[in-house]
Design a binder for these strands. Structure first.
Lengths: 153, 153
DNA sequence: CATAATTGGACCGAAACAGTACTGTTTCCT
DNA sequence: AGGAAACAGTACTGTTTCGGTCCAATTATG
C-alpha cells in the first residue's frame, strides 16, 4: 500500500535520538531511549552501519555514532538504506518488463520515481526533529494542486 | 522497498490503453493489447470499476470504459484505488504507535506523506502517455538537488 | 591473558501479495 | 425463449518480503 517498512520508521526514530547524543551509544541504551525492541533496534543499526549512515565501534565500550549531522541525512537516504532503492515499478531502466513493447509508456515511471525521490530528499532528519519541514513542503506543494487533476485524496 | 504493487503498474498501462479507445473494451481485448495476462487484467479492471475509475457494462457486448478522461486521472488516484491509502508509516493520525511517547517526532510523517501524495497527484495518466511529465517535474526537482542533503542516491 | 561487552552476519517463522480458478449474474444475439 | 458472452464476486495457492531471533567474530578492560 505504498507504505515503507516499519524498520525504516524505527531507523528514523533511532537516528534522531542518536543525533541528540554526543558519545557512542549502544543498542540496549537506544532501545530503552526509544521504546523500540532491542533486537530490532540492533538490526536497524547494523544495516545503517553497512550503509555508512552510522559508524560502529565493536567490542566492549563500543556502540554507534552518526556518520553525518542530522541536517545532512535525508529521509530518502534512510529509506534507501533500509528498504533498498526507491523505484516504484520493476519496469525501470533495464528491468525485466515483459510488456515493454506493448505497454507504450516506455520509461515514464522513471519520472515518477524521480518526483518521489526529490520529495523525500528535501526532508532531513533535522526537519523531522525540529518540525521545520512544513515550510519546505510549501514550495513543493504549490505547482501541483491549483486546478490540478482529480486527486480523490 | 517503497515500490508500488505490480497490479498498480498494470492498472496504469490498462487505463492508458483504455483511454485510446472510444468504445467499451473487454478484458480479453485489453489483455492482448497490453500483454498483461488475461486473469490479471480482469482483476485489475474489476477493482478499478469498484473505485469508479472505469465504468462497466455487463452482459454480451459489455466491457469497460474510462469514467473520466485521462487528463483527470492522477497517478495518486490509481495507486490509492489499487494499493489503498498512501501513508508511509503506521504511525499516522490515530495509528497504534507503541513508541509514540518516546519517539518524539509526533506526526511529522504526515508531512512526508503529503509530499508524496502531492508529487503523485501532479502526474496524470495523460502525462504518462504523452511524455509531457518531464516539464512538470522540472519545477519539483529544482529546490531539492542543488547542494541539498546527502542523498546517497 | 582471561573475561565481558558489543557488533556482525546468518537463519527462520509469519504475513502480505500476486496470480489463478471457479461460480454466479446480467445482457445481447439468434 | 434459448444460448452465448462478458462482468462480479469469492476463494485458493504459490511466492516473496518483512520482522524478529540466534549464534559467531571482535575488542576494551581488569
Amino acid at each position: 500500500m505504498l507504505k515503507l517498512s516499519k524498520l525504516t520508521d524505527y531507523a528514523v526514530v533511532a537516528l534522531v535520538r542518536l543525533g541528540q547524543k554526543e558519545e557512542v551509544t549502544t543498542s540496549p541504551v537506544l532501545s530503552r531511549s526509544t521504546g523500540i525492541p532491542e533486537p530490532t533496534v540492533a538490526k536497524v543499526l547494523k544495516i545503517l552501519a553497512t550503509q555508512g549512515i552510522v559508524t560502529s565501534q565493536r567490542g566492549a565500550r563500543g556502540g554507534y555514532r552518526l556518520a553525518h549531522p542530522l541536517e545532512e541525512i535525508s529521509i530518502a537516504t534512510v529509506i534507501q538504506a533500509i528498504d533498498g532503492p526507491i523505484s516504484l515499478t520493476t519496469c525501470v531502466d533495464g528491468g525485466d518488463c515483459d510488456a515493454r513493447s506493448t505497454c507504450g509508456l516506455g520509461g515514464q515511471w522513471d519520472m515518477v520515481n524521480a518526483a518521489i525521490r526529490n520529495a523525500l530528499s528535501a526532508i532531513t532528519l533535522a526537519d523531522m526533529k525540529n518540525h521545520t519541514v512544513t515550510d519546505r513542503l510549501g514550495g513543493l506543494r504549490a505547482p501541483s494542486m491549483p486546478g490540478g487533476p482529480a486527486a480523490t485524496a
